[in-house]
Design a protein around this nucleic acid. Structure first.
Lengths: 144, 144
DNA sequence: GCGATGTAGATGTATAATGCAACTATATAG
DNA sequence: CTATATAGTTGCATTATACATCTACATCGC
């Protein structure tokens, strides 16, 4: 089977590359007050509860040092607070603060409004399918 | 109509943010010999024929200076060559060289193989739909 | 209990991508 | 012919990132 010549794969590969460019460019100027790293970290913490930098780094495929710096920035801005791990003096979890939650929600609204613009004219079915396929893809991309 | 609370939009927004993270992390270590910027530029030039840096920058939503540097790097590597615009002494187009085409194809194969892995177990319909929806999304994202 | 080894996280340093501002050279308009 | 606009380049600053190293604590073997 000649996978590489599969037309669908060809298209997905190209469109993903383009998507990366476009969405990176779009989100470089922040929507709301949070930059992309901050937004994703807060999103994750909000959804999964407090986690340490190691787990967060794994979740995003980033180096621990990178997340450590991002977390420090978030803490300095009062968006998260450290919650010491009672069983491990080295470790702590990052918990979202009320301020962090408010900023997260504001940024999320701004981003969703942007997406809503881009999905204007799509059918409900297309939107739903797009979300599900992206989710399915992300699941796989995490494991690998 | 409460767009912002549409479940599909909520999911698309989140999954796009995650996708960006994952795919960026994945493509940081290059597949093939070309980095991401080089790959996309060559891809575009191959598909659209020679274009100047201004048009290329617009196509990717990047600053002209950024593309100018990327183009210089491509030229230094012999992947593209400058084609002076006969009607405008300031302008030139970037044309892909044989070497550039070979590298493009090699990198494209490597990337497609990677995508094929990630889409393993998907139905043909899902793959096709994913590609089409990504394309549709990118089209909109370019105009806006 | 204590030394060896492992682990969570922070920090030093280097690199790469990018944007903005200033510049050069050419084109076009009045 | 001068003034202004445009294509592209370059200087500079910023940001995100990885890798290596370091510190503090934990755990394991004895």
């Amino acid at each position: 089977m000649d996978m590489e010549d599969d037309g669908a794969i060809r298209q997905v590969e190209l469109e993903l590359a383009i998507l990366l460019r476009r969405v990176t460019a779009m989100t470089t100027r922040r929507l709301g007050t949070l930059d992309r790293a901050a937004y994703l970290l807060l999103h994750r913490i909000d959804a999964h509860g407090p986690e340490g930098v190691k787990r967060l780094a794994q979740a995003f495929g980033l180096d621990v040092s990178t997340v450590s710096r991002q977390a420090a920035a978030l803490e300095a801005s009062g968006l998260v607070r450290r919650i010491p791990d009672p069983d491990d003096g080295r470790a702590y979890g990052l918990g979202i603060t009320d301020h962090g939650l408010a900023e997260l929600q504001a940024t999320r609204r701004a981003r969703q409004a942007r997406i809503a613009e881009l999905l204007e004219g799509w059918t409900d079915e297309e939107r739903t399918m797009f979300g599900e396929l992206l989710h399915k893809f992300n699941q796989r991309a995490q494991q690998r």
